Computed example of a mutant assay.
Amino acid sequence: MAKDIGIDLGTASVLVFVKGKGIVLNEPSVVALDKNTGKLLKVGADAQAMLGRTPGNIIAIRPLREGVISDYDMTERMLKEFIHKVAGFSFFKPRVIICVPSGITEVEERAVIDAGIQAGARKVYLIEEPVAAAIGAGIDIAKPDGHMVVDIGGGTADIAVISLSGVVESASIKIAGDQLNEAVVKYMRRTYNLLVGERTAEEMKKQIGCVFPKDEEETMDVKGRCLLTGLPKVVTVSSTEMMDAFEEPVERIMEAIHSVLERTPPELVADISTNGIVMTGGGSLVSGFDKLVTARTGIHTVVAEDAISCVALGTGKSLDSLGAMQDGTMNLSRRKQMN
Rank of each mutant, 00 (worst) to 15 (best):
D4E: 09
L9T: 03
V18H: 04
K19W: 06
K21T: 05
I23S: 14
V24W: 14
E27G: 08
V31R: 07
D34M: 00
T37C: 00
K42R: 07
K42G: 01
D46L: 05
M50F: 00
L51C: 01
I59Y: 02
A60K: 03
I61W: 06
R62F: 02
G67K: 03
I69C: 13
D71Q: 14
D71V: 12
V86C: 07
A87M: 12
F89V: 12
F91E: 14
F92V: 15
P94M: 11
I98N: 05
E106Q: 14
R110N: 14
R110G: 15
V112F: 00
I113L: 14
D114F: 11
D114Y: 15
A115C: 10
A115E: 08
I117Y: 10
K123R: 11
L126K: 05
P130R: 12
A132C: 12
A132F: 15
G136M: 11
D140S: 12
K143S: 12
P144G: 15
H147E: 13
G153V: 10
D158K: 04
D158T: 05
I159T: 13
V168L: 11
L180D: 06
V184H: 03
V184R: 08
K186E: 13
G197H: 01
V211R: 00
F212N: 00
E216A: 13
P232Q: 04
P232I: 04
V234L: 06
V237I: 09
V237Q: 04
V237K: 07
S238V: 00
E241K: 04
M243C: 01
D244F: 05
A245I: 02
F246S: 00
I253G: 02
M254F: 13
I257W: 10
H258D: 13
E262Q: 12
R263H: 14
P265L: 13
I272V: 13
I277G: 09
I277E: 08
G281I: 05
G282W: 06
S284E: 02
V286W: 01
G298A: 14
I299G: 04
V311N: 15
D320G: 05
N331P: 09
L332E: 02
Q337P: 01
